[in-house]
Design a protein around this nucleic acid. Sequence first.
RNA 1: GUGGGUAUAGCUCAGUCGGCAGAGCGUCUGGUUGUGGUCCAGAAGGUCGCGGGUUCAAGCCCCGUUACUCACCCCA
Length: 445
Amino acid sequence: MARKASLSGFPEWLPNERLVELHVLDTLRRTFELHGFSNVETRAVETVGQLLRKGDIDKEVYGISRLQAGESTGDDPNALALHFDLTVPFARYVVENAGHLSFPFRRYQIQKVWRGERPQDGRFREFTQADIDVVGDGTLPFKYDVELALVIAEALEALPIGDFKLRVNNRKLAEGFYLGLGLSDTAGVLRNIDKLEKIGAPRVKDLLLDEVGASSDQADAALALAQIRTEDMSFIEKVRALGVEHELLEQGLAELGEVVEMAVRRAPGRVVADLSIARGLDYYTGTVYETVLVGNEKLGSICSGGRYESLATKGNRTFPGVGLSIGVTRLVSRMLADESAVASRHVPTAVYVTLAQNDSWSDAQDVAAQLRARGISAEVAASAEKFGKQIKFADKRGIPFVWFTQEDGTHEVKDIRSGEQLVADPATWMPAAEDLTPRIAAATA
RNA sequence: GUGGGUAUAGCUCAGUCGGCAGAGCGUCUGGUUGUGGUCCAGAAGGUCGCGGGUUCAAGCCCCGUUACUCACCCCA
């Protein structure tokens, strides 16, 4: 059971919960590196001017000020603030280090981010994001849009989170469609279509009529597009059947088709073409991704991103990119809440070395050192309490083995779960591989 | 930022009409004096969120406040 933090929105896990989070982080790191992504870390703060480049989100940003100085971060673009995602800092990093990087540059970045939003289930003010992006110099082949969807599907598949769906759409497809319909405020249409799942078609239609000046037919057509959802290439025929024509629409169909075609082959069942996905942020220009846990759709997206033709600019150079961001904290909070993953024990210790007499502590440390030298985590009792108490100490922590040294200098090790106690040699004894370190087990559904 | 709900032991929660602060679980100790888990007995553990008011008397009623929480907004 996930414990609620004392400061809302700033979660702090217990040791066994943190083990689950570490397992997620280790798994992501391993998957990303297997696919050749380099890691970078950027500073926690950016200037306000830098952060607000991509939109009016100043309400979400935590400013930094020195208490003594009584400074106000107010409107000063040079004031410092905590980053609220990893994409904007990465864009700055790319520009500043362009001369040292080789493009296309693929990097992953796993860090805390901060947002001054009202916390709720699965929504935090301090949380960890795991980003992967590929950024090019001037151009970036579309194949990366396909590749990133597959890398993310693989990464999520390696986690004990149950079934998920990576929903993919394409901005060009949607915008071309709206333009072909004669709706020029494509951003406005997108913004309202994005609410479809939450508020339903009738209310979205009202919004389209009121806010973007669509006719009833135009609104119906936009809604019809958004209702298309297929796990194969058939979405293309369904779009064509709506009878709208536009050059941008054709481009979008071709691009989304490429992602879906490859996903069907390489990640079957994980990717769905979902033409209702819009994504709130307006810097996406092509592919957009959003991921939900099947059965936990209300939690919101656990991973999203997209293609942006201009991640950053430097002089007359532009750096297009495509990337996705996994909401690690949201994911972990869900895994803890529904106990879909639990640590096999609370501590790293595999062997608890007991003490027969208080003055045998140093000898016990010699035993522990021999075990540690072979990669076995060992801990020595602090006082020679009754063996019953020492065993209980280990049992409460889930330590699987208790070590006894006899008066004659021989050793025995007890498996605390079976009660089986055998003669053992500290120079050669090994626990079973699954007992060496805490394991994260997926609950069997 | 807007609206609703909640706040009592480490955890989950009772607390009647305003009249001595409670239970279960957990923790600790002992039974069992150097091999745990079960069982039995006992113990410790409280700023009743905080501040004010009404009253002979407030966990309970009134006002304020803070935190938490759900929804809106927005997003991982």
